[in-house]
Design a protein around this nucleic acid. Structure first.
Lengths: 236, 236
DNA sequence: ATCAGTTTTAGTCATTTTGACTATAACTAG
DNA sequence: CTAGTTATAGTCAAAATGACTAAAACTGAT
């Protein structure tokens, strides 16, 4: 019984088409408060279905690249960015995701550092949106963004992910702002700093950040490797 | 730039073939100690590549079923089982997973209850193996099993997953045995019970399990819904 | 009937972690 | 020099954790 199934699986049996998409998060200052908030780039659909609506960057899977490579290329082609973190999110394969044909999308999510994000391409058909205000998107992309946000919040709880939204050097207050932006809460600065300082992957540097109208905070550096995929090997 | 990519993605552009596989875990008593241990069913390859080697149950994705449905059918066809838990594990799409052609496998993992597992089909070409002693498998299936085990251990830490390896009613000692089997450690019975009893989804029943040569333990019931996929919606 | 053997179950106690909060340090702007 | 601001250290009670003790409730053998 299985044997017949296996045979069919291995045949080139007119499979659903396969696409790669990416949810790309970066931190940008909110226009209102100036505090950092989560943003992501979307591309406008220039043809049916969903012509005119915004959608996640996506593209084909060529024969010569792995899933992760395809996602990277995708990201580079739409925004010109190299991600500091890239992980597979989920394979979406519902029957009616696209009205015209059956398509299975393998979706990745990425984090980019603000220095990178600042020089990201933007154009008529590529624009950054606040993650909590994307409006109505094409296909099932609203659900995908929601799920990516949920995963990001989850990963944050586990540890070494926040730093990929920051530059190489950062203050503990900046780390706290990442948590506050992603989790949408306020955290006690003193307690938060105690916890962060307890993690061994955060290293004090001798440098301080000058220029604020207050005591200059010490700069830190993240020394751990991210927990990635089976492709890259590591944590939850 | 994106626009051309999108077009290609939507075309039927001779994509890699798409397969669904499943890693199915169940608890069975170890022959040696009698304590419960993790097992999973494998199927023997009856043709090249990897003819004769054991492999994960897998099959085609038909046009009329979702990814999850395909995984369920898969599971039912090879073992005759209905899983009590089913979740997408990962999409494996490396270039050289199969020597003959490019194939992307979307892998699910499942938990089945021991009552179910006891009546699972077994035959010349379908056999259960201890999860830590599967030997050399076809394709990249050893890596997939390792990753599935890692995910299972992780989920266990989070909470409401152990119960899907047990029947409807269970003793707290049985829950502890699940943890001990999956994490491969011993846990203090008293402390473990205190923690489990602190979770609200575990409900005392009035029943006791008779038949042991010791004080009869109370039976409990799990009342929470599992945390599943975006397809099903819920926790980590 | 009693006793030894077993696991369940409740509980104690010291240690660690967490959350709320206070106080001082070190800068800038005026 | 002072007010304003954030950084940073520290205190203290409450909660969670880990190691451990002991009683309860069964079975099977004497």
């Amino acid at each position: 019984m299985y044997t017949t199934s296996a045979n069919v699986a291995e045949r080139q049996a007119a499979p659903p088409s396969l696409a790669i998409s990416t949810v790309i998060f970066a931190l940008r200052p909110s226009e209102a408060s100036g505090r950092p908030t989560l943003w992501l780039p979307l591309v406008r659909r220039i043809r049916e279905p969903f012509k005119g609506l915004w959608a996640l960057p996506g593209g084909p899977l060529t024969h010569s690249e792995s899933l992760q490579d395809a996602a990277s290329r995708n990201l580079r082609e739409t925004t010109g960015l190299a991600p500091s973190y890239l992980e597979q999110l989920y394979a979406f394969g519902g029957l009616h995701r696209s009205p015209t044909q059956r398509v299975v999308s393998i979706v990745y999510w990425a984090l980019v550092q603000p220095t990178e994000a600042a020089l990201a391409d933007e154009s008529e058909n590529v624009r950054w949106f606040r993650a909590d205000r994307v409006g109505e998107l094409a296909f099932d992309h609203n659900a995908i963004v929601d799920y990516a946000l949920w995963r990001l919040r989850n990963k944050l709880a586990y540890g070494s992910i926040a730093y990929h939204l920051l530059g190489e050097y950062f203050t503990l207050a900046q780390v706290r702002e990442v948590y506050e932006a992603v989790l949408d809460t306020r955290l006690d600065p003193a307690n938060f700093r105690r916890q962060i300082k307890a993690t061994p992957e955060i290293e004090e540097t001798g440098e301080y950040l000058q220029g604020g109208k207050h005591r200059p905070p010490r700069l830190y550096r993240f020394t751990g490797r991210p927990g990635l995929d089976p492709d890259n090997r590591s944590t939850p």
